[in-house]
Amino acid sequence: MKKIKTISDLNAIRKVLENDRIDSEDKKVIVKVAMSTCSIATGSKKVISFFREQMGLEAIDSLVVQTGCMGLCHSEPTVIVSVPGKDSVIFGNVTEKKVNEIITSYIKEGNDIEGVLLKKNS
């Protein structure tokens, strides 16, 4: 990142970054994979790379990003999936098999599938 020299510059940069965020969330499928020590221990590294690979193969306009953990240790690895126009949904105990199901059934066909921990309005 370029050096921010003044407080007003910081505020201007924040505006740009905020807008970027909203724009991208409007049209793209966002997948957030929890990647803290506990999540990684239960296999989230595999999950994130498999998601990236499959989303690429399926040519879905998407963004797969890592985050810290949400604290849902009982169900790691956890993943938040946001499809444009829908509430974000948190999936727990995600495996490669589950990733396939999320992509084909939930994201592409728009079906409700099992494994949802909770819905999130964000």
Partner: peptide, 25 residues
């Protein structure tokens, strides 16, 4: 924990976008 699980902890841009460093400013 407000940002834990919602932003990429390895990107400062993500933090700034959610009012990061606003308090410092």
């Amino acid at each position: 924990l407000k940002n834990c699980g919602s932003i990429d902890p390895e990107k400062i841009e993500n933090y700034i976008a959610v009012d990061g460093y606003k308090a410092l400013g």
